[in-house]
Each structure stands twice: as C-alpha cells, then as structure tokens.
Design a protein around this nucleic acid. Structure first.
Length: 415
DNA sequence: TCTGGGGTCCTAGGACCC
DNA sequence: TCTGGGGTCCTAGGACCC
C-alpha cells in the first residue's frame, strides 16, 4: 500500500532536532550591548579563581574555551572583555527562546538553559521536512530575539546533539538515517554525551579513539571501561539508536556554592558564609514553591579534596532557620577535618512541591517569628535584589553562636 | 594567577523492615 | 541457634553535562 510505505518513510525522517544556542551567555551580553560586537568577550568570574562560562567566537579564535581558568584566557587575549554573569537575564531570554520553539513545534523537551530537543515528525504537513523547520526556527530566533543558534537533526536524539555541535557556529546539519554510521565513524568518542575525560582515557587504554574504532572492539571489552552504559553507547556508535524525546522530570535539587579568591581559615567565618547560603537556598525554595527534606553541605579544601555531608529533616521545610540549623550542625561536626576552605556550598535535595508536602505548624508559638521575618526578607529581596538583604548576624564577622534560644521548648516543635 | 556554579545520575555500603 | 533474600532509605563520593 502506498500510504503504508509513506508512513514507513516518515518514521525514518531525521525528525529529532537538537537546537543549541551559540555561546549563549556571551551572545545575550553582545546583543544587549552592541559595542561588544566582534570583540573577544567572555562571561565569567573575573577573580583569581574565575573561569570562563561562555566565550564569544572572536574569543574562541584566540583559543579561549568555556571552563578555562580566566587567568589563562587573559594571557591568550590581553584585550579580553570580561562580563560578570547575569543568570536571571539568561533565564529570562531562555524562556523567550523556549516559547518561540513551542509556538512552532508541539513536542519540545528543554534540557538546559540554552538547548532543547524537538520532535518535528508530526509537523511535516504544516511546515515541511525537518530541514525546513530547522531553518525556520533558526531564522525566527535570529529575527525576533537577535541571537544565533545551531540545529542538528537525526533519527536519534544522541546523534542530533552531535550534529548540532558539528554545525556550530550559526549553522545546521541534518543527518539522513542512511548516512548516520558514516557521519559518526571518524568522530572522536568524546563527542558522545556522557563520555567525559575519564571514559575517554579508559577507552584510549584499549586502543579506541574514534567511533569507528569503538565498533571494532568486543562489547565485553568496552563494558570493562564504560560499565552499564555500554549497550546504549554501542547502539549510538553503529547508528542504530532511535531514542527520541524523553519526558521532562521535575527539579530534584537546588542550591548555591561559592569559591573564594582567598581560602577561609576562620571557622566562624565559614559558619557565617554557610548561614548566608542556607538563607539563599531557602529563599530559592520558597520562590520556586518547593520544600526540601535533605540538606547537603559541600566543602572543598585548597588541594581540591571535596567533602559532602547531608542531613535529612524529620519534616520537609523551606525555612532558612531550619536549613541553617542543620548546615551549621554539619559544619561543627566536620570542621576539624578542614583547616582551609576554598569552596563551600549548600544544596537542598529531595524536593517536594510545597503544596503537597505535609504542612509544618507555622503559625503557633515561636515559629511565627521567623516565618514573618523570612517573608519580610523575601519581599525585600524581590524589591532590592539578593545581595542587599541578609540576617543581622550575617553582616558582621563576629561569631553567630551560641544561638539566642530562650529556655523552654525548642523553637519549632517537630511534628 | 590552574581550574566556577548550576545541576543530574549512578554506585555502594549500612541500617532497617518484612 | 542459625539463617536468607528483597526492598527501601540514608549517606558519601564521583563522573558528567552546560
């Protein structure tokens, strides 16, 4: 039947697209300040321990890459323009990009702030074949948002992602089903998402550098390096992968961390900083409508040794006071292990929607006090920005403890 | 001037329950 | 007195992604 054959061909359309914004953070800064156009611009931390978060293409031609230490980038380009990141701004523009994609294609899966997968197989009658749709999306993003993007297309999401990387900058590359294996053959295994530095080194040890070489090695040998991911990676390598869009899972954790130009050596100062971070995380929780069950403290010493300690609460919470108590307790338990702190972080995991969570008794007894205080802090933060508001005790470098707890029952009864 | 900050997922051991 | 296996939760660490 003719119809049947047409449908078979439709299924082999390279209709999984991966759209990736080019040098996203840097491109947004350049669009917002056209005087930066054509210059080596990076977004990232300017401090001694800063790294590059995004590099404009003029910066890239000088050898500058993301994740590179800023000191190295400066050496490569003495005229480098360093712009501090504005995550709120990027999230705002990201939402505009995703809204535009959703306007054209029903099936969109956002996977990070600057990229998304699209399944355009069902949009053929309306908009034409995948390459036409890819061109339309890129054109609209350029015309309406003033930003460059690249698109890869394939019968599989993994290959589409590889294709978009090959298409950069400001290009597109659609791989027909029958060309997939040939397209992948010469590429280094590092193009595969999930194959990072450790896996690359392990594969090198068994004589594998390219995807075609990966195909020649017995699966059992590959498995000794890649473990349980092996079947998935081998399907990708031989071009037989057909994985399409996944479903968007809800947020699982949220947190903040900071590296200081100079190590912290005073335990009271560390305590003060993690107290501030606990409040920031609590604010993020409240703003995004989550409560947390487990709070994680992360500490890194100058030699890179990283330690994480977690504490699970008896009740989910979005209270800075709760988070702070747990995080400070973890710090006091572990502080003897680390005498110099390069990085500290606070993360909330095991998130639950605030509505569905068991309700904490908030308006009785002493707990009403900090609830009111934190609500007021939230309002002030919304008005004046995050940096201006913090607890009184966090503003000085005086020790915060012991906490001013009146005699009698504990501040918040555990229910 | 050598390495950030936001995350996800996986593994593995021990506790605990049935 | 000796004994198992499965399931789940908690904790810690690590690889990886953008």
């Amino acid at each position: 039947m003719g119809t049947q054959h047409a449908e078979d061909r439709t299924e082999e359309l390279p209709g999984i697209l991966h759209l990736d914004m080019d040098a996203f953070f840097a491109s947004v800064e350049i669009r917002d300040d056209p005087s930066l156009q054509g210059k080596p611009v990076v977004v990232g931390g300017a401090g001694a321990r800063g790294v590059v978060a995004a590099a404009s293409y003029p910066a890239r031609t000088r050898g500058i890459r993301s994740a590179m230490p800023m000191a190295t980038a400066r050496r490569l380009a003495p005229d480098l323009i360093i712009v501090p990141g504005r995550m709120d701004r990027y999230r705002e523009v990201s939402a505009q990009v995703m809204a535009l994609l959703g306007d054209v294609v029903a099936e969109v899966e956002q996977i990070s702030v600057d990229e998304a997968f699209l399944d355009v197989r069902g949009a053929r009658r309306l908009f034409g074949p995948p390459d036409t749709i890819a061109a339309l999306l890129r054109h609209r993003i350029r015309a309406e948002l003033g930003l460059p993007s690249s698109v890869g297309g394939s019968v599989s999401r993994a290959v589409a992602k590889i294709a978009s990387a090959q298409a950069k900058p400001d290009g597109m590359l659609i791989i027909p089903a029958e060309d997939t294996a040939q397209f992948l053959a010469p590429l280094p295994v590092s193009v595969i998402s999930g194959v990072g530095p450790k896996a690359v080194a392990g594969l090198e040890r068994i004589g594998v550098r390219t995807i075609s070489q990966l195909r020649e090695v017995p699966a059992a040998t590959v498995a000794r390096v890649l473990g349980p991911r092996t079947p998935e990676v081998l399907r990708l390598a031989d071009g037989s992968d057909r994985t399409g869009l996944g479903h968007r899972t809800r947020d699982k954790s949220l947190g903040t961390e900071r590296t200081w130009d100079e190590d912290l050596t005073d335990p009271r100062e560390v305590r003060r900083r993690i107290t501030i971070m606990a409040d920031e995380v609590a604010h993020q929780l409240r703003r995004s409508g989550f409560v947390t069950r487990t709070v994680v403290l992360k500490l890194r010493s100058p030699d890179g040794t990283t330690l994480t300690r977690s504490s699970t609460l008896s009740q989910p919470t979005a209270s800075g006071e709760r988070l702070r108590e747990h995080v400070v307790a973890l710090w006091e338990r572990e502080q003897h292990r680390l005498h110099r702190i390069r990085l500290a972080g606070v993360r909330a995991t095991q998130l639950e929607p605030a509505d569905g969570a068991p309700v904490q008794q908030e308006l009785t007894g002493r707990s009403a006090g900090w609830q009111d205080l934190e609500a007021a802090m939230d309002r002030a933060r919304e008005r004046f920005g995050g940096a201006t508001v913090s607890r009184g005790s966090t503003l000085s470098s005086e020790p915060v403890g012991p906490r001013q707890t009146p005699p009698g029952p504990p501040p918040v009864p555990e229910l």
